[in-house]
Structures are given as C-alpha cells and as structure tokens.
Nucleic acid binder design. Structure first.
Lengths: 123, 123
DNA sequence: TTTCGATAGGAATTGCTATTCATATCCCCT
DNA sequence: AGGGGATATGAATAGCAATTCCTATCGAAA
C-alpha cells in the first residue's frame, strides 16, 4: 500500500443536517440553509448564489422547492426597482434558521466532545 | 402557491456524518461506514454491496479509497477458497465503527432533544 | 418613458458519479 | 485436477444533477 495521502492528525468530523420527509426526500437541504443565510446577509438571491459559488438557477430552484414542500414562503421576492430587485427572508425563514443554528451548535458540541476519543480510536 | 406536498407534522431531521481531511475531502464517507457494518454482518464485500444496493465496483472502490487515505487496511481480503472468498474487518475497522457509533448516538440524542422545539419553530 | 439589474423559469448542455461490462486471479473443496 | 464464487481492476456506458443559455417580466430612478 502506498503511503497515506493524509496524516492521521489532520482529520475532522464533518456532517450535514437537513430537514426531510418520511419518504427521505429532502425538504430543506443543508445547502439551502446556507443559501438562506447568504440571502439574509446579502439581500438578494443573486448575490447569495454568487457568494456560495452556485448558479443562480440552482439557488432559485432549491428555494422554490423547499417553499413548495413546506407550504410557505421562505423569501419575499421583489422584482424591479432600485438595484433591479431583491430578496428578503420571511419571519418563518428566520425561525427556521434560528432552529437550525441551535441544533447545529448542539451537534458541534457533541462532535467536540467526541473528537479526541474518536481520533484516539482510529489511529 | 400550490398546497404543500408534505405535512408539517411528518418532518424529520436527518444527518450524515463523515471523516474528512482539512481539504474537505472525504476520508471515510457515511456510506462507507454503512458498508463496513454490512461487511461485518455479511462476511463478504459482495454480499454487503448487494445488501446496500450498490454496485460491487463502487463498494470496492470506496473501501480502497478510505484505506489509502487512512494509511491502513479496513478489511482483510481473501480470494478463492470456500465460497469463493470473503472479507473481514480489521481490528482498526472495528475501532472505527465503535467510535462512529458512539458519536452517532450522541448526535441522535442532540436531535431528539431539539426535535420538538425545532418542529415548533418551523411550523 | 427608458434603462438597469434582479427575479422567473424553460430548454439545452456539461460534467460527474455510479453502473455495467469484461477479464483476470485466487484457493478451498469435491 | 478442476469448478465455483468472491476479490481485483480497467474501460465503457448510463443516469442525473448542476451549469449554461435565453428570454420575459417587473419597478424604482434617472
């Protein structure tokens, strides 16, 4: 076997968290959470998509998909006007992000807690 | 907007956990953990792959990839012989699965804990 | 009232990932 | 000694998801 392409020491635990239906179908993917955060910061879907380095087409489709599955809007869309348009989060989207962040912190803590033991066990 | 294709009530939090390098490159993907568990149960990579409904080619490649990145073997491979051959987990792979399962349980607990609050906030 | 830039969304294309295909090797058991 | 079934691996193909391309629409500001 060839020498390892990575050192045992710089190993990390990563995860993705998403909201799903019983069927397993993703309702709000992790990438969509990130997108919503970027919209909150940037004020437009276009800027958010660019920030995350994904195509506008995909970003737009992802949010639309989540909205349809949830049954409510995550963004208030404005076409035309100053700057050409903008997108803002709805209060429900704010709630979603708040809940997501809270859970995210808990999971980060669980990983933090397990990390040393994990590294020990796999080396 | 059309009526939602899913009820707010049957919504679940799902996640994937994996071991990664600084670069973000996956070292042991979640699917590989599952594969290793299946090998442990089934005694062969072929049976494990079939059990998980993935091609033998991919299963084989995934394990090889993880082994190369880790720098050690996760399976003891045996060609020929009774039954044509078999694969068994190495003790390091057992450790890996043990560590993975422990962390997995912690993350499940974090989700369990946050679940009601989450559902409340997103409805 | 014309312009500018973002939202909206269909259609074609690209690009990656997994499957499929093909072939070789190994070795216990009969 | 030979058969059978799993491991091993390259090469081609299929399947899918994201990007690219295009064309419309909207409305504040100049």
């Amino acid at each position: 076997m060839k020498p390892p392409r990575s050192s045992k020491n710089d190993v990390f635990l990563r995860y993705k968290l998403w909201l799903a239906a019983v069927s397993g179908e993703g309702i709000v993917e992790e990438s969509t959470y990130l997108l919503l955060k970027a919209v909150r910061e940037k004020g437009s879907l276009k800027a958010a998509a660019e920030h995350l380095n994904v195509s506008y087409r995909k970003a737009w489709g992802d949010i639309k998909n989540s909205e349809e599955l949830l049954g409510y809007e995550l963004t208030e869309k404005h076409r035309g006007g100053q700057g050409g348009g903008k997108s803002e989060l709805t209060s429900k989207a704010f709630n979603l992000l708040e809940a997501y962040d809270a859970l995210h912190r808990k999971m980060d803590a669980a990983i933090e807690e397990a990390y040393q033991d994990f590294k020990e066990k796999i080396k």
